[in-house]
Amino acid sequence: DQHKDGQNGVNVFNALWKTHNKDKPLSTYVEKTPTGAGVHIFFKVPAEVFNKPIVNELADGVEVKTHFTPIYPSKRRDGDYQPFNETDTLADVAECPDWLIKLIHEPRKTSRAPYNNNKGGAINRTYGANIWELFNNGATEGNRNNDTNRVLHYWRKIGIEPNTCMDLLQTFNSRTSPPLDDDELATIWKSVFKMN
């Protein structure tokens, strides 16, 4: 993603790619997002590596998703997903490099300060704590779809019932600026919980 606050996930991913691949160019299927603020880069992965859904931030502006993401020819009210190069298709998806699979499974080094437990010792912030902070603050424009997916996948993972998740989602959306419309919210909820 690339957003108004200076976040540039494209540059961050390019730097990661150059660090690990030297001069080897990126050669896989890529799509532009409807707003033009980001790209989706696709890789094939062994099923056993990602036997559980993952939605997490690999680096600033670089989010990793398995199991679900909208793709061409999906349409949204603000535009359509499009192949980065007109002649590319999903047949062009390359195998995911080993270094990237390894990096995805390493805990991210966060810039957030650790918090103190009751005994006074510092402990690292958990992913769950970050999700609940996101829930309390709501998503911001440019992150709304990704953040809504993140909170829903987390709630599903920890066993919250789908209907309860929809109630929580309405509260989360009311804190989001600007809120997603009800149809888009329902579409995301249905996709996460595999509802028809």
Rank of each mutant, 00 (worst) to 15 (best):
Lys22Pro: 14
Ser27Met: 15
Val30Ser: 00
Thr33Asn: 11
Pro34Val: 07
Thr35Met: 03
Ile41Pro: 10
Val45Cys: 00
Val45Gly: 02
Pro46Asn: 11
Ala47Leu: 14
Val49Met: 04
Phe50His: 03
Lys52Cys: 01
Ile54Ala: 00
Asn56Ser: 11
Asn56Thr: 02
Asn56Gly: 04
Asn56Leu: 05
Gly61Asn: 06
Val62Ser: 09
Thr66Asp: 10
Thr66Phe: 14
His67Ile: 09
Phe68Asp: 06
Pro70Leu: 03
Pro70Thr: 03
Pro70Phe: 09
Ile71Ser: 14
Tyr72Ala: 04
Tyr72Thr: 07
Arg76Val: 15
Gly79Gln: 11
Tyr81His: 10
Pro83Phe: 03
Glu86Phe: 09
Thr87Cys: 15
Thr87Ile: 11
Thr87His: 12
Leu90Asp: 00
Ala91His: 06
Ala94Thr: 13
Ala94Val: 02
Glu95Trp: 01
Trp99Ser: 04
Ile101Met: 02
Lys102Val: 11
Lys102Glu: 12
Ile104Tyr: 04
Pro107Ala: 09
Arg108Glu: 08
Lys109Trp: 10
Lys109Pro: 09
Thr110Gln: 02
Pro114Leu: 04
Asn117Cys: 07
Asn117Leu: 10
Asn117Val: 03
Asn118His: 04
Asn118Arg: 15
Gly120His: 02
Arg125His: 03
Tyr127Met: 14
Trp132Lys: 13
Glu133Leu: 06
Leu134Phe: 08
Asn136Ala: 09
Asn136His: 07
Asn136Arg: 15
Gly138Leu: 14
Ala139Asn: 07
Ala139Lys: 15
Asp147Leu: 05
Asp147Lys: 02
Thr148Phe: 13
Thr148Lys: 05
